[in-house]
Measured scan of single mutants.
Amino acid sequence: NTKMVRFKKGDSVGLRLAGGNDVGIFVAGIQEGTSAEQEGLQEGDQILKVNTQDFRGLVREDAVLYLLEIPKGEMVTILAQSRADVYRDILACGR
């Protein structure tokens, strides 16, 4: 149940992230009207890879910085997997 989305970065990627470290990086929110939303990313999706950067094992701050450093107008390719069950557990633990 993995999906790959590809879009051109606007002012931002339009994602709020949660998790990090051993639990993985998850989409915690999506800005309305962004390409990330239009391409089908959803809250609870685990981000496995962005462009050439493996997101598994990253701390959340490093994942956020990586997304911020992608220049506006560059193509962004995100490999994600729907993991809403794991995401709910992360929220319940306050991570």
Rank of each mutant, 00 (worst) to 15 (best):
K72M: 07
I47E: 03
N51Y: 04
L41G: 00
S82N: 13
L48D: 05
I78P: 00
C93I: 12
M4N: 03
R56T: 13
A18R: 08
L91N: 10
G73A: 03
V23D: 02
V86C: 10
R83E: 08
R88L: 10
K8F: 11
T34K: 01
V64T: 10
V5Q: 00
D11T: 07
T77I: 03
G20L: 03
N51F: 02
V59W: 07
K49G: 02
L58A: 06
L48T: 04
R56Q: 09
G94W: 05
Q38A: 13
I30Y: 08
E61Q: 09
E32C: 06
E61Y: 03
D11W: 01
K72C: 06
Y66S: 05
G94T: 13
L68Q: 15
D89Y: 06
T52E: 15
E69R: 14
A80M: 01
V23K: 09
S35Q: 13
Q81M: 12
L41K: 00
G73H: 10
K3I: 01
Q31I: 11
L68E: 15
P71V: 00
K72H: 03
V76K: 01
Q31E: 15
Q46G: 04
S35R: 12
L15A: 06
E43G: 03
L68P: 06
A63V: 06
L65A: 15
T77V: 06
Q38Y: 12
L91R: 11
Q42C: 12
D45L: 03
L68A: 15
K9Y: 03
K9W: 05
G19T: 04
A92K: 13
L17H: 02
E69S: 15
A36Y: 10
E32S: 14
L15M: 11
Q81D: 08
V13A: 07
K72W: 02
E69I: 07
S12Y: 11
S12P: 04
M75E: 14
A28I: 10
G40Q: 11
A84H: 14
L15T: 07
D11H: 08
Q53G: 01
G33F: 00
G24Y: 00
V86Q: 10
V86A: 11
D62S: 11
Q81S: 07
R83K: 12
Q81R: 14
D45I: 02
K3H: 01
G57I: 03
A84Y: 14
E43T: 12
C93T: 13
L48P: 01
G29R: 06
G14Q: 06
I70T: 06
S12R: 10
R95H: 11
L91Y: 08
L65T: 15
Y66N: 08
E37W: 14
A63M: 00
S82M: 00
D22R: 10
G20M: 02
T77F: 00
R88N: 13
L68W: 09
V5G: 02
S35H: 10
R95Y: 14
E69T: 12
V76G: 00
K3F: 09
I25Y: 00
E39K: 14
V64M: 15
Q42H: 06
S12M: 08
G10E: 09
L91G: 12
I78Y: 00
G94F: 07
F7T: 00
L15P: 00
L91C: 12
G73T: 05
G57D: 10
Q53E: 08
G73M: 08
R83Q: 11
A36L: 12
F26G: 01
G73R: 01
R6D: 03
N21E: 15
D62N: 00
L17E: 01
V5H: 04
Q46R: 09
D89G: 12
E39F: 11
L15H: 05
K9V: 01
R16E: 15
L41T: 02
D89S: 13
P71I: 05
A36Q: 06
E74V: 02
L48M: 10
K49F: 10
E61W: 00
V5C: 07
G24V: 04
V86W: 09
P71R: 05
V27Q: 02
A84W: 14
R60E: 12
G10V: 06
Q31N: 11
Q81C: 09
G73D: 02
L91K: 14
N21D: 14
K9M: 08
V5E: 01
K49C: 08
I70H: 00
F7N: 00
I70P: 00
R83M: 09
V50R: 00
R88P: 12
I25R: 04
A84V: 13
V5S: 01
E43D: 06
L41N: 04
D45W: 06
R60L: 15
R60M: 14
G29E: 12
R83V: 03
